[in-house]
Design a protein around this nucleic acid. Structure first.
Length: 238
DNA sequence: ATTGCTCTCCGTCAGGAGTA
DNA sequence: TACTCCTGACGGAGAGCAAT
């Protein structure tokens, strides 16, 4: 579920992710509001990785551009979970959030994620947008199997809907019940492991993206330092 | 064609942490 | 405290690839 980040930093979980530098929707490793004092004397955009960095107006920047316009770099806020963090949250809470990654459920809640409705057979619909504006149709592929039915999401994602969730009752009888419980536990754990691996991949992708962003920032700062030195020497000789 | 190696993906188990 | 969720660790299966 790669989220698409728009200009406002909001995440659309269903939007396709940009191919080269995918912005992830898991907990961000890119810190919000990282602002630079980098000037834009040289056209800085080619230096910076597309998709990860935007140029914004920053009137109180300490460094002037030759044209007089003031700019700063801001790393785009990339995740939905971070979207939910307001600036006035306590440092302790923020620290907690950093030391322990939020659960998938929390992430999904932060995303305002899809609500799954279980329909006995045939098509299943998921409302994932505000006011149910975005309805996605699903088709059952093995609804006859015991324990769970594999559901194929229209965009290619696959997940399970436990049959017990539909029927709501568990078979009585000691051994059968135990086996049933074990089946369900394994099923859930299988799904959890799958989700965990997916999230881990996204997390690694985020780390790689952050490396790229920081490298670009570093490069830009070096350039900035160089130009400032030149400017200083120039003024000194005059 | 076969073999050995590496990589990736998957299922399962175990244990820590959160929650009712 | 029992239950659930999440994730690291482990092992198996399959694909890709080079060497023979």
């Amino acid at each position: 579920m790669d989220g698409m980040v728009d200009e406002n930093g909001t995440v659309d979980p269903l939007a396709p992710s940009p191919p080269p530098v995918a912005i992830s929707s898991v907990q961000s490793v890119i810190q919000p509001n990282q602002q630079s004092v980098i000037q834009t004397a040289a056209n800085i955009q080619p230096v910076l990785g597309k998709g990860n960095v935007i140029l914004v107006s920053k009137p109180n920047s300490v460094i002037q551009t030759p044209q007089g316009s003031l700019h700063a770099l801001q790393v785009v806020e990339t995740t939905a979970s971070d979207d939910s963090y307001s600036d006035d949250e306590s440092p302790k809470k923020r620290r907690d959030l950093l030391t322990r990654r939020p659960s998938y459920r929390k992430i999904l809640n932060d995303l305002g994620g899809g609500e799954i409705a279980v329909i006995p057979a045939g098509a299943i619909q998921i409302s994932s947008g505000e006011g149910g504006q975005s309805i996605h149709t699903l088709s059952m592929t093995n609804s006859g199997t015991a324990g769970a039915a594999i559901v194929q999401y229209a965009q290619g994602q696959e997940f399970f809907v436990p049959v017990m969730a539909q029927s709501g009752n568990i078979t009585s009888g000691g051994g059968e019940d135990q086996a049933r419980k074990r089946e369900m536990r394994l099923l859930k754990n299988r799904e959890a492991a799958r989700e965990c691996r997916r999230k881990k991949k996204e997390y690694i992708k985020c780390l790689e993206n952050r490396v790229a962003v920081l490298e670009n920032q570093n490069k830009a700062l070096i350039d900035e330092l160089k130009s400032l030195k030149e400017l200083y020497c120039k003024q000194k000789t005059e």
